[in-house]
Nucleic acid binder design. Structure first.
Length: 419
RNA sequence: GGAAGGUUGGCAGAGUGGUCGAAUGCGCCGCACUUGAAAUGCGGUAUGCCGAAAGGCAUCGGAGGUUCGAAUCCUCCACCUUCCGCCA
C-alpha cells in the first residue's frame, strides 16, 4: 500500500504522478476525504476511551460505586456507537487506499499504454529464414511438444500439455536459471502456491484491479498464487532485518495461476497466455538507497540468461501507463517471435519500493538503530514463454528445431526431430 | 477426519477480573570499572495508530461476547505439539 503521509503532505503531487498511471485524481480526493473523517472519528473515540479508562480506575477504588457505574454505563453505550462509525469509516478508507497503486518514479517515461514503452536496447541477431517461418504452435504440434486440444477437453481453454522435449526444455531452463544465478548469492526456494487473503492484500496483489485475476478457493479461504513472488515476498513478514544481511536475494520456482480475466480476445491460440504455467522468479530485499541498483542488477541477470539462450531480445522501460500496479519502475525483456514479426514479453523486472513491505511489515535496521521499510524487487528468471521463442527462432526448413548450444547440453541432444 | 495440550515482549517464562503494557532471567544498547577483554555494577531496551507537540489510544495468536473494567471468563476460528485414522 501507498505511504499515507505522502498523500497527506502533498496530495497534488500524488495526483499528478498517479494520473500518469491512468488513475483518476478523484480517487485521491476520495481517499483524502475519508481519511480526514476517519481521523476525526478516531480522535473522538479515543477521547471517550480515555474517559472510560479513568472512570474504570475510579470505580476500582471507590467506596460508593453506584453513581460512577451509571456514568460508566452511559459512556459504554456511546463508545460502542462511535466505534461502529469508526469501523465503517475505516473500511471505506482502506478500500479507497486499496484503489491507489504505487507512485511511479518521476523520471519514468510517460505514456498511455504499451505502445509508448521506451526501447532501451536490442540485443542479438534476429534469425534470417529462406522459408516462411512457422509459429511456435505449429512447430510444437508437429513435434508433439504441446497439446492444447486434449487440455481443452480435460481442463478448459488456456491450458496446455507440455510433452516430450517440451517438458524437458522446461526442466532445462529451470536448471540453467539456477546454475547461472546461484553464484550471485540467491537462496533457492520452492514456496507454497496457496496464500491467505490477509497476506495477499498486504503485498498489494489483491488490489482493486488485481482481484479478478486470482483463483480463490472458498472452502479454505486461500488464493492460488499468480507468481512465486507472491509467497516469496512475505518470507520476512513482520521481521526487522539487520542491514548487514541486505541485500537478501531469493530465486524461487512455482506454478503460477492466472484467471486472465479481461484478456478474452488476446493470444487465445497456443500457450503464450495460459491459466497455469511454471516460472522461476527472482526476489530481492534491499535498503531503499540500493533499490535502483538492485533493479539494474536483476535486469542484468535476465539479460545474461537470454544471452545464454542466444535469443534475440530487447529491453524496454515500461511507460507509466503500462506499469504494474505495485511498481515504481518496470523493465520488460521481450524475445523476438519471427512468426509474429515482433517482440513479445518473456520477462518483467520490477522495483516495488516500499509498496509491498509496508503491508507485510518487513523492515530493516541500521547499525545506529534506525529502522525503515525495505524495498522489494521481483523479476522473472524463466517462465515457459522462452521455450516458445526458442521453437520459433531455432526452427529449420525441414521442420526440426536446432537447440541453442547450452540447452543441448542439458537435453543431451542438439536437435528436436519428429518422432 | 477424531482426541488432548498449547499460543504472553528478540528469546525463555511468570501472571486466573481492577494497582498489568505486563514479574524475572537471557539477549541487546549505553555508562562505570579494566591496559584491553571477560566478569561485575548502574541505567535503558515491544509494536502500531492519532496528534505540531504535550500526550493519548490500541495491542498478551485472530474475531466476537460477558463486564463499569479482560492477558485472565465464554464462543468461534487459525496455527503449533502429541496420539489415532487416512495418505504421496
Amino acid at each position: 500500500m501507498l505511504d499515507v503521509t505522502i498523500l497527506r503532505n502533498d496530495p497534488e503531487r500524488a495526483k499528478e504522478l498517479l494520473s500518469r498511471k491512468n488513475i483518476d485524481p478523484k480517487t485521491v480526493d476520495k481517499f483524502m476525504r475519508l481519511d480526514t473523517d476517519w481521523r476525526q472519528k478516531i480522535a473522538t473515540l479515543e477521547g471517550l476511551q480515555g474517559e472510560q479508562n479513568t472512570l474504570t480506575k475510579e470505580i476500582g477504588i471507590a467506596q460508593n460505586k453506584d453513581e460512577l457505574l451509571t456514568k460508566a454505563q452511559i459512556l459504554k453505550k456511546r463508545i460502542a456507537e462511535i466505534s461502529e462509525d469508526r469501523d465503517a469509516l475505516e473500511k471505506k478508507r482502506n478500500e479507497a487506499l486499496n484503489r491507489l497503486p504505487n507512485l511511479p518514479f518521476e523520471d519514468v517515461t510517460q505514456g498511455k499504454d504499451e505502445n509508448e514503452n521506451k526501447v532501451i536496447r536490442e540485443v542479438g541477431k534476429r534469425p534470417e529464414f529462406d522459408f516462411e517461418p512457422k509459429d511456435y504452435l505449429t512447430i510444437a504440434e508437429s513435434l508433439q511438444l504441446i497439446n492444447t486440444e486434449v487440455a481443452a477437453k480435460v481442463s478448459g481453454s488456456r491450458f496446455g500439455y507440455l510433452m516430450n522435449e517440451g517438458a524437458l526444455l522446461e526442466f532445462a531452463l529451470l536448471r540453467l536459471a539456477l546454475d547461472t544465478v546461484l553464484p550471485h548469492g540467491f537462496t533457492p526456494v520452492i514456496p507454497p502456491i496457496m496464500i491467505r487473503p490477509k497476506i495477499y492484500e498486504g503485498i498489494g496483489r489483491l488490489a482493486a484491479d488485481q482481484k479478478e485475476e486470482r483463483y480463490y478457493i472458498e472452502k479454505d479461504d486461500v488464493y492460488l498464487v499468480g507468481s512465486a513472488e507472491h509467497t516469496l515476498i512475505p518470507l520476512h513478514v513482520g521481521e526487522t532485518l539487520d542491514e548487514k544481511y541486505l541485500p537478501k536475494r531469493y530465486v524461487g520456482f512455482s506454478t503460477c495461476f492466472r484467471r486472465e480475466a479481461g484478456s478474452y480476445g488476446k493470444d487465445t491460440r497456443g500457450i503464450l497466455r495460459v491459466h497455469q504455467f511454471d516460472k522461476v522468479e527472482f526476489i530481492s530485499f534491499v535498503k531503499p538507497e540500493d533499490s535502483e541498483n538492485e533493479h539494474r542488477f536483476l535486469l542484468s541477470m535476465q539479460e545474461t540468461l537470454m544471452q545464454k539462450l542466444e535469443l534475440p531480445y530487447r529491453v524496454v522501460e515500461n511507460c507509466t501507463g503500462d506499469m504494474g500496479w505495485t511498481d515504481a519502475r518496470q523493465f520488460d525483456v521481450e524475445a523476438w517471435f519471427p512468426s509474429q514479426n515482433k517482440y513479445r514479453e518473456t520477462h518483467s523486472c520490477s522495483n516495488t519500493t516500499d509498496f509491498q513491505s509496508r503491508g507485510i511489515g518487513t523492515k530493516y535496521k541500521t547499525r545506529d538503530g534506525k529502522k525503515g521499510l525495505v524495498h522489494t524487487l521481483n523479476a522473472t528468471a524463466f517462465s515457459q514463454r522462452p521455450i516458445l521463442a526458442i521453437l520459433e527462432n531455432f526452427q529449420t526448413k525441414k521442420g526440426t528445431v536446432k537447440l541453442p548450444k547450452i540447452l543441448s547440453e542439458y537435453l543431451g541432444k542438439s536437435e528436436i526431430v519428429p518422432k
